[in-house]
Amino acid sequence: MQSNMPAQAYIDEAWFGRERDLLFKPLWQFIGLKVMLDKNNAFIKRTLFGIPVVVQNFHGELRAFENICPHRQNPIQVQPHGVRPLFCSYHGWSFDSEGGTRIPHEDALFRFAPEERACIRLRRFALEVVGNLVFVNLSADPLPIKRQFGAAMLASLAASSAAFDGEVIMTTYDGRFNWKLAYENLRDEHHPRYLHARTLYQEVRFEASIDECGVEALRRQREQGIGDRERALALLRSFSGGGRDAPMQAAPNERWHSNVERYRDQDWYYNWLVFPNLHIASADGGHSFIVEHHVPVGPGRTEFMVYFVTAKKKRPYSASAAVLHAHMMGADKVLREDIDVMEQIQQTLYEGARPAHLGDYEFVNAGIEHWYLNLMEGSFAL
């Protein structure tokens, strides 16, 4: 089947701006791991589609705010994560859990009128915690998170991420590719046979197949259109899912495995795809996890943030940091194989380039594409 996705969807700045407004601002977005926010004043700072966001722990309660001081627009938290009060180092303004402001020397130096003073507070964003995953919503009227992901998916994410240990290592890649290439790649089970032939495919034999029911559902979707918003949301929920994916070639057997509480007890590759831009996997049967967050920066640039955790420790052990580092280095080989091919694809795209030809096994990607184009064309709004 021929794709209807134009090259402009991957390379055009104006198109990217419409994505921000029509897709990402209305939807719940992953922003970080709860285990990194376990102390009072712990914070994580991210930029989501150009909007600086900080999630801060106030005595056990997490709040999300715009990370801009209302005085001179200085960022309040500067580091990606840490433990520090919500305090602007430029002029000493500080902020409470409601976004309210304490201003040193307010009467002597600022003399704000009462009506202006009442407006001086941080912009707050909606926040939801699902297991160990923290999501924010940039909309003034957020969609209920269950309507985006569905109850079953939220329960699966909560159960799997609850297995995460508190020790985390993370790294960031500056990907020169459009974010949509990442979700298309993740939902393509045929490419590991070739792209990862000497790495991941040696451990997990992914097998692509054609689901005739899925192909028929796609045909009806294309013929009948998306319809109303409720139908669009039902389709959106179908784009996220996960759990057991493919059996491992051999049972996992590392010395450190006895030190952690394994997630389940099956020798499978676990895989959770969270639309639009989050991926969680366990390549060793639930002993450790990788969390990949693809943050769109521009039409041809994606900040690729990757977290590595083991399952919860039964007891502290001296090699835990080395285990995480080895996990990161092993995953780096596979990640760079994916990044390289996505950057190559990005470089070939130009306005007027012919669209792709998809196989029937790619019906999931084709269905997301059809939904996405209807959204971008204004057929429905989230």
Rank of each mutant, 00 (worst) to 15 (best):
S209E: 13
A42Q: 04
P296Q: 01
Q266W: 01
H190P: 00
R46C: 03
F135I: 12
N277E: 09
H71I: 05
R354L: 05
F206M: 14
R193E: 14
A208M: 10
K180D: 04
K312G: 05
R72Y: 11
A234N: 13
S379T: 04
F16N: 10
D188T: 09
R63T: 04
N40I: 01
Y10W: 07
K146G: 15
Q29D: 07
V341D: 01
V291P: 02
E337S: 01
R176V: 01
N41Y: 10
F308T: 03
L195H: 10
T101Y: 10
D141M: 07
Q73R: 15
N41P: 00
L23Q: 08
L233H: 03
A251D: 08
R123W: 04
L358I: 00
R123H: 13
M329P: 00
G100Q: 13
P247T: 06
P70G: 05
L33T: 04
F16W: 14
C213Y: 09
Y10H: 07
F58Q: 04
A159D: 12
W179F: 13
A42R: 05
T101E: 09
N365Y: 04
H287F: 14
L375W: 01
L37T: 05
N74P: 00
L37P: 07
L373F: 01
H357K: 07
P252F: 03
F125I: 01
H59Y: 09
D21C: 00
R198A: 13
K333D: 03
R84A: 15
R102M: 07
Q148G: 07
A281W: 11
V323S: 02
F149L: 13
G359S: 06
R72L: 14
A353M: 09
K333L: 11
D360G: 00
